[in-house]
């Protein structure tokens, strides 16, 4: 649940979601659920030459299980809070 709680804090910020099929989509994080399904708005594909057909997409819903990485905005990373949260998670496990 750590990732879910953390991603919820990032709603409204810009993130880049990289899929396991190498497609990377940048957009405003609209919502995230417990399965880490991700809904993005104002999206644009990072490598537009390789994926021209994705140009027209302005919002999209990505299945959590196909996500490889989520690149975070630097101002969305509060190291102290993350440290605390990971320690709590480790104790709980």
């Amino acid at each position: 649940m750590l990732f879910f709680s953390y991603f919820k804090e990032l709603v409204g910020k810009e993130v880049t979601v990289e899929l396991k099929n190498d497609l990377a989509i940048r957009g405003i994080l609209h919502s995230v659920d417990q399965y880490l399904n991700i809904k993005l708005e104002n999206t644009r594909v990072v490598d537009q030459e390789k994926y021209p057909h994705m140009l027209s997409v302005r919002n999209c819903f990505i299945r959590g299980s196909v996500v490889r990485y989520v690149q975070l905005p630097p101002d969305g990373v509060d190291i102290d809070i993350l440290h605390d949260a990971t320690r709590r998670e480790a104790r709980g496990a």
């Binding site: 057909h53 994705m54 302005r58 919002n59 990505i62 299980s65």
Partner: peptide
């Protein structure tokens, strides 16, 4: 794995 609304007539 992904679904989206596509509205740009140039791509489709």
């Amino acid at each position: 794995s992904l679904h989206a609304v596509s509205r740009d007539p140039e791509t489709y």
